[in-house]
Computed example of a mutant assay.
Amino acid sequence: MTPDAGHAASADLLAIARRIALDVAETALEERRRGIAVEATKSTPTDVVTAVDRDTEARIRSMILDARPDDGIFGEEDDTHVGTSGLNWVVDPIDGTVNLLYDIPAWSVSIAVVDGPPDPEHWNAVAGVVVNPVSGEVFAASAGGGAHLGDRELRVNTEVALPQALVGTGFGYAVDRRRSQAEALLHVLPRVRDIRRIGSAALDLGAVAAGRLDAFYEQGLNPWDHAAGALIVREAGGRVGGPDGGRENDRLLLAAAPSVFDQLAALLHDAGVPAD
């Protein structure tokens, strides 16, 4: 496949992902306005699932299979659907469920298409969309096609020094992990401009791409939390990586403007992130 043909295919997949994400985002917002409650818990009693999570993923899966029946689907709330095309859709129906539950307007629908297995260390992201249903903002990117917020092309901030960097992060739900993350934060916070904790990794990554944050890091993320957002950062000119200079994984995801990436990686290493 020529580069032009590859870009065209990525753009076509992005168009499908955008259409699906916008459709389910509207329905999820309507459900939130009618009121929601916790339906179940996942890893801990504070890690919750709502009916909106499950209903939204079911709608996404149905729409993907209607449009692309040979593709695989890897999501948070249901079993993996194994496809035959080599492409996998990586789906987070609601990223930021606790924000959704408390009606904090920072939750999102995240849909990505990747070439390869549903493993961020071995896939190549092709297209990704992150929609904030409350604000209506749509972050989107395709491989080689750049990143956009609506019609605006996105670029990460440039010439950022670590002491002036605004850094986003997040915390896990397990008590031991939260404790170690808080201890690491004590090392990081005095050495950067400030810290933000938004509650949706997908929106944090969109914020890095849009220059609203200079960097974002988190431990314990699942592939669906960052599949779309990491591509959006990369297509906006940012760097994304994981432990020891490798690809992002569940031990660490770091996304940042190029000028601050290495400095922040070194700072996190000094703070014991990721823990072995």
Rank of each mutant, 00 (worst) to 15 (best):
A182H: 07
D250Y: 10
I104V: 15
V138K: 02
T41E: 09
L101N: 02
V260D: 12
G245T: 01
A21Y: 03
A165V: 02
R61P: 14
P105Q: 00
A28M: 15
T50A: 10
A51M: 11
D194P: 04
Q219R: 13
I111G: 10
V131G: 11
D270I: 00
G72W: 12
E183H: 09
N132R: 09
V156T: 02
A147N: 11
D214C: 02
E31G: 03
P163L: 01
V114Y: 02
V38S: 07
G220F: 04
P223L: 06
I60P: 13
E218Q: 15
D4K: 06
V208M: 05
D92P: 04
Y102A: 06
N222L: 15
R196Q: 07
P274F: 08
G128R: 00
A266P: 07
T50I: 04
G245D: 12
V126K: 11
E121T: 13
V114C: 13
H122P: 12
T46D: 14
T46P: 07
R177T: 14
V129F: 08
A21G: 05
V109F: 01
V24N: 09
D214V: 00
N157L: 13
G237F: 12
D23R: 11
D270V: 04
V90P: 05
P243C: 03
G72R: 10
V91G: 08
A147K: 08
D92E: 03
W89T: 00
A215G: 02
D151C: 10
A67K: 05
V131C: 07
A143V: 11
E30Q: 13
E159H: 10
D12L: 15
I20R: 09
V52F: 05
V208W: 07
A40V: 01
D95P: 09
L252Y: 03
N124F: 12
R179H: 12
E153L: 09
P223W: 06
D194E: 14
D70I: 02
V52S: 15
A125F: 07
G238F: 01
V130D: 15
I94S: 11
V90M: 03
L149I: 05
S43K: 14
W107S: 02
G242V: 00
D92Y: 12
V175C: 14
